[in-house]
Write a protein that binds this DNA or RNA. Sequence first.
RNA 1: GCCGGGAUGGCAGAGUGGUUAACGCGCGGGCCUUGAGAGCCCGUGGAUCAUCCGGUCCGCAUGGGUUCGAAUCCCAUUCCCGGCGCCA
Length: 429
Amino acid sequence: MLDIKLIRESPKLVKANLAKRGSPEVLQMLDDLIAVDRQWRLNLTNLNDLRHQRKQVTIEIAKLKKAGNDAVSQMEKAKAIDAQISTIEKQVVEEEQKTRDYLMQLPNLLDDTVPLGKDSNDNVQIKTWGTIPQLSFPIKNHIDLSLGLDLIDMERAGKIAGSRFFYLKNQAALLDLALMSFAIEELTKKGYTPILPPYFMKREAYEGVTALADFGDVLYKVENEDLYLIATSEHPMAAMYMNEVLKEPDMPLKLAGLSTCFRKEAGAHGKDTRGIFRTHQFNKIEQFIFCKPEDSARLHEELLQNAEELLQKIELPYRVVNVCTGDIGTVAAKKYDIEAWMPAQNGYREIVSCSNCTDYQARRLNIRYREKDGAPTKGFPHTLNSTAIATGRTIVAILENNQQEDGTINIPNALRKYMLGIEKIDKKR
RNA sequence: GCCGGGAUGGCAGAGUGGUUAACGCGCGGGCCUUGAGAGCCCGUGGAUCAUCCGGUCCGCAUGGGUUCGAAUCCCAUUCCCGGCGCCA
């Protein structure tokens, strides 16, 4: 959520920034917001005047009654004012609601370093790491590889749950667990607090962390309950301190969340339909930070660095892109994606997403911070999030990058200790 | 799920139908001091209007209701504590 005061004071600045997103609807919304906010403040002043008058009448009535006098005419006056109040109150409530609706829909302000662009093709590559494997034999994709090794069963998952679900079996199941243990251990060593969050959130909390469109496109809702399945542990971590005030000595607050993630993938029809690259359910370790505004740019780089280190340790070639204005999404002010090399697709595919959300989520969630106990609040902290490891896509990358001519797969050295010392996935078990 | 108790500022905690959220702690500022502390004085929820002085409204978990008037009475909801039940 943007700061309404900033919008009032510097509408031109806000407008110029939002214009970079290339959406006429957003600019229209901003204009509408400014208009309704102006009207709201006008009506609020009127309403307060009426309430003041009403109070005076109440006082008069009390005096009259105390003195044992008749207060009929005052009572009638009170009624007349009440009628006016209720009319104008309706308008004020409506205007307030509209203001809030607009504020909840407007996207975050973009950082100056975000490249201008229309879609993901305009993302700017800022580095590459690792060597793309030169395979001297026909490359298999992760689906064919796993069929030969009995690692994934899509068919039976389809039978019981539908498309985009899967059973992980044998060494693939171990590999999923290994990736989680690996990521949690590495982040914990760096001082991140390991977190296993609730997998469900109420609407009120969820609205604080994500774009409203996600309620239709991404989130599964529990029938007859005010509960949504989480799409990432970023969400319960961000909402964890809703309506609270953090203390500066506790910041930056660094968390490492581990959860299964549930996503409807609405609108992804036809994309990545086979295999486990894009699924309704996957496991992910996520980094999350609450920090002082002045620290967020630096910590954004730290999160990226951490994510890169994990990929380097498991020896996956990747590149980093600075996500452009047309591809960045509602909540982020700046976002890096890491894309791992996927041999079967002969290209880089997103495997990590690393965002600085500035104060956008904190303002929605009403999370503030203060210097110390008793001191006045200083404002809203910044929030940042980044994938550490998303197991599904990482497994795809490991299978495809580490495949051998005989159909076996080498396990990266860093993961072996987390999966019974297995060095190589060969033969069916 | 049932029964009972509870929710008031950053914290602790009064107020239990009459206009002003007591007192304290913490925090900020000032006086004093070589400095710090102690002591003393002032301030310390939010929104909005006003160039300034300042004004108005809202705020006692949330949403409704009763009343001229609600932190206070009534109803519903949420969460917390205790007891019972169910349960991996």
